[in-house]
Amino acid sequence: MGYHTFDATNADRLENAAERYRYLSREELVGTLEPTDTDVVADLGSGTGFYTDDVAPHVGQVYAVDVQDAMHEAYREKGVPPNVELVTSDVADLPFEANQLDGAFSTMTYHEFASDDSIDELARTLRPGGRLVLVDWSADGPGESGPPTDERYTAGDVVTALDDGNFEIDTATTRVETFVVVGIVR
């Protein structure tokens, strides 16, 4: 089961480009997601929309999914692109139709929603062949940034969860402090 959510009173920290891009650049995210200009994707744990804004120019629509209305308020204050819709929801109970999404991504939030129910819900809402990009703090990392290491998962943990949840693994990479796992819905 996932751990606590990010404290929305610190939402301004999520807009620090130098810090955020240190662990995941815009180019890496967009390149890994492989979007088309007509794709419908979801940003899982979107927060203030930092990475949502990076993906929005490359797709038809982005659903910015977060469990905290306060994060959506911070995003509204910043300005939401016209092709982004804010959705307040837990990943384990997404308000989307089956096969509605072409792709989904999570940047540094998998540890907050990790569960069999969330993986099952993603497999339901992503179309067959849809891409799920998960980038998060690794339990194998030194813990210099991000949540405590005991609240993190390894890339291997994520690979196992996705494999059990009807995803084929496309990529699984562990870096110094983070991992990248890409699953394709079978």
Rank of each mutant, 00 (worst) to 15 (best):
G2Y: 10
Y3C: 12
Y3M: 10
Y3E: 13
T5E: 13
F6M: 11
A8D: 07
A11M: 00
A11Y: 03
E15P: 03
A17C: 06
R22W: 05
Y23Q: 06
Y23V: 03
L24N: 01
R26Y: 06
E27S: 10
E28L: 07
V30I: 11
L33K: 02
E34I: 00
P35Q: 06
D39E: 06
D43I: 00
G45V: 00
S46V: 01
G47T: 01
G47F: 08
G49K: 04
F50H: 03
T52F: 01
D53V: 09
D53R: 12
D53F: 01
P57R: 13
H58R: 09
Q61M: 05
Q61H: 15
Y63G: 07
V65N: 04
V65H: 01
D66K: 05
V67R: 15
A70V: 05
H72Y: 11
Y75N: 00
Y75H: 10
Y75V: 03
P82R: 09
V84A: 06
S89I: 05
V91K: 09
D93P: 13
D93W: 14
L94M: 07
P95Y: 09
A98F: 12
N99D: 15
N99A: 15
L101W: 06
S106T: 11
M108W: 04
M108L: 13
M108C: 05
T109W: 00
D116V: 15
I119M: 15
D120T: 15
E121R: 14
E121F: 07
A123M: 13
A123S: 15
T125Y: 02
R127V: 13
P128E: 14
R131N: 02
R131T: 05
V133R: 01
V133Q: 06
L134Y: 04
D136K: 08
A139M: 08
D140P: 09
D140R: 13
D140Y: 10
G141H: 07
P142K: 11
G143Q: 06
E144V: 07
G146M: 01
G146P: 09
P147E: 11
P148G: 12
Y153D: 09
A155V: 10
G156I: 00
V158T: 11
V158D: 03
T160V: 15
T160N: 14
A161R: 14
A161Q: 14
L162N: 08
L162C: 09
L162V: 07
D164W: 02
G165A: 09
N166D: 15
F167W: 03
F167P: 04
I169C: 14
T171L: 00
A172D: 13
T174I: 07
R175Q: 12
E177V: 02
T178C: 12
F179N: 03
F179W: 04
G183T: 00
G183Y: 04
I184P: 07
